[in-house]
Amino acid sequence: MIKILVCVKSSAPADAPLVINDSGAWIERGFSHTEAVPGRYDELALEQALRLKDQISGVMVDAISCGPTREIRVLRRALGMGCDNAIHILTGEEGFVPAITTAYRLSSAIRSRSYDLILTGLMSEDMNQGIVGQMTAEFLGMPCLTSCVSISVDAERRLVMVERDIEGARRQKLEMNMPALATVQACVTPPRYPSLSKILRAVSMEIETIEADPVTVHDRGEILTRLTYPTRRRSVRFLEGPSRQKASELVSILRSRAILG
């Protein structure tokens, strides 16, 4: 039996509007809880884990999320995709949470559960840092490999084999001893859609809830003081009117610049 855990987090749909709130230090949630979707890389991590479950007998895949109540929707989706169990570390807060706090909470919940392989997405859609996975591995004392584009396991030798891309258009093949953590950048197959039968099953499944203990928060004095909109590096001119009109205007502009013949 190989036990795999996938760490997931909800995000806003990619085209959801984003507005800085009155405090100036966080955003208005421009999307409702019902619109929350797993982050793109988290979905790839789920697909990667479920592929292993399809390929090897005796693989169990669980999903875990750390955040407010909206994470339940993402966990249900993970169950709908085929995960066996879901764990929710319930936090009260909306707003900025330092990565190290999340990693600490995840590792505290994971430690006693003896997973062989933990997968996370390469990075979240909101903080875009790509650091929670490595921190979690460190708290758990596990080896960790990042930016993986393919993952396989050798249950007998208790090895995780990965491939990853690095700068200079190079691909590395590496292996590590289980238990281990890998962050997922890509997967051979696109994330599967939840199947109707699994969705129906997921509705009745219980999601284990753990209250995040505020006392155990691992804080390193990291504070987000202010949010601003990016400054324009170029003064963009938006073309107006229907598509055809904009298209002819662009053609004229490019011809006047001798870019288009």
Binding site: A99, I100, A103, G130, Q134, A137, E138, T146, E167, R220
Partner: peptide
């Protein structure tokens, strides 16, 4: 913050009891 830098540094932060800010 190259692939290697991100791979290396965040676990290091945990190990030396430091905070961490990426990118």
């Amino acid at each position: 913050g190259t692939t290697q830098g991100l791979d290396l540094a965040t676990g290091l932060a945990v190990r030396i009891n430091a905070g961490c800010l990426a990118n």
